[in-house]
């Protein structure tokens, strides 16, 4: 909508009433087209005054602004580490170069990529399955009160269990298999997703739900058209937390379970067996890297987009 010229409204007001000038009855101009036009230009003037244009930096600028702090932090940690090594602060601390050398060796003997690949694949599958179970389960529990009364404390209790406590159960039940690994991931991720979904739906603004109901969005239609879209940012938080829990559970499971397939957790176990601090640290770095990458390449942009669309981010 184009903003009116500055000064247009006062000019129009000072001009004699055209309706009166053309000989129509003066004094009854409240309802005439002239008055309606006046009101409309007033309204669009107010609209222009009260809305602000959204500003955006260029893509490269924003990327740079976002990438700089974490890179600086990484550089700082590396510098500190190198200093500690040079000053021989610790007997067991390997040089950063030794750790990266370990990664280089793993790369060249062809064990690094399969390890990353299998771990990520397990987590993606496990997480996908956990999301496919956790989201509907949470949503179902928000709608069925008796079920919620029973299951919610159970889910919260499982959520508080460390994954390490679940692995032996999974191994005895399912053997040293991929199945045991997936079971651990699911038990780690599903309760966390479901519990967060319930909390999100409970915190939705009642006014929106009331508005939806007054328009006829009740029952399943209300859930699909109002509750789910309203709760979407919360669902994303649920998934994000589910991913974190799942990834941690997976590493624990890989570390303890002797599956035939490689993984980052197995690298960690190997390092521990061979008493190689550099291999252990190399594995830890990998675990961190995958976690940070998924967080910053998947969840953060998604969340930002959702929140920006709703005007919930601070510009």
């Amino acid at each position: 909508m184009p903003a009116p010229e500055p000064g247009a409204a006062p000019a129009a007001a000072s001009v004699p009433d055209p309706a009166a000038a053309h000989g129509t009855e003066p004094g009854t101009d409240h309802g005439t087209a002239h008055a309606a036009d006046d009101a409309q230009s007033m309204a669009s003037g107010l609209d222009a005054l009260e809305t602000r244009a959204e500003q955006k930096g260029s893509g490269a600028q924003r990327l740079l602004a976002k990438a700089t702090p974490p890179l600086l932090a990484a550089a700082l940690v590396l510098a500190l580490w190198q200093t500690a090594y040079l000053l021989n602060w610790s007997q067991v601390l390997p040089a950063p170069s030794a750790v990266f050398g370990e990664l280089g060796d793993a790369w060249s003997d062809g064990t690094l990529l399969p390890a990353i690949w299998h771990s990520t694949l397990r987590c993606v599958f496990g997480f996908g399955l956990a999301a496919a179970i956790g989201l509907p389960l949470g949503l179902l529990l928000t709608r069925v009160a008796p079920l919620r009364t029973v299951l919610r404390p159970t889910l919260t209790a499982i959520q508080s269990l460390p994954a390490a406590a679940l692995v032996p159960v999974a191994i005895i039940a399912l053997g040293n298999s991929e199945g045991a690994v997936y079971a651990t991931v699911l038990l780690g991720a599903v309760p966390s997703i479901a519990v967060t979904v319930i909390a999100t739906v409970e915190q939705l603004p009642p006014l929106l739900l009331r508005a939806g109901r007054s328009m006829g969005a009740t029952g399943l239609r209300g859930t699909a058209l109002v509750v789910v879209p309203a709760a979407l940012p919360g669902f994303l938080s649920a998934l994000r937390q589910g991913w974190t829990f799942g990834w941690r559970a997976l590493m624990t499971a890989e570390l303890i379970t002797a599956t035939p397939l490689p993984g980052i957790g197995q690298m960690l176990a190997e390092g521990k067996e061979s008493n190689s601090m550099s291999l252990v640290l190399a594995s830890v770095l990998l675990i961190l890297a995958v976690g940070v990458l998924v967080e910053s390449a998947l969840f953060q942009p998604l969340e930002r987009r959702l929140l920006t669309n709703r005007g919930l981010t601070i510009p």
Partner: peptide, 28 residues
Amino acid sequence: RPALMFQDHALFPWLSAGRNIELALRLA
């Protein structure tokens, strides 16, 4: 069903202005 309008606009923030209206049309 009577239409109800509130002190707070109660528009759905995940939809554009037009889509908010379309949702009401859909439900009608």
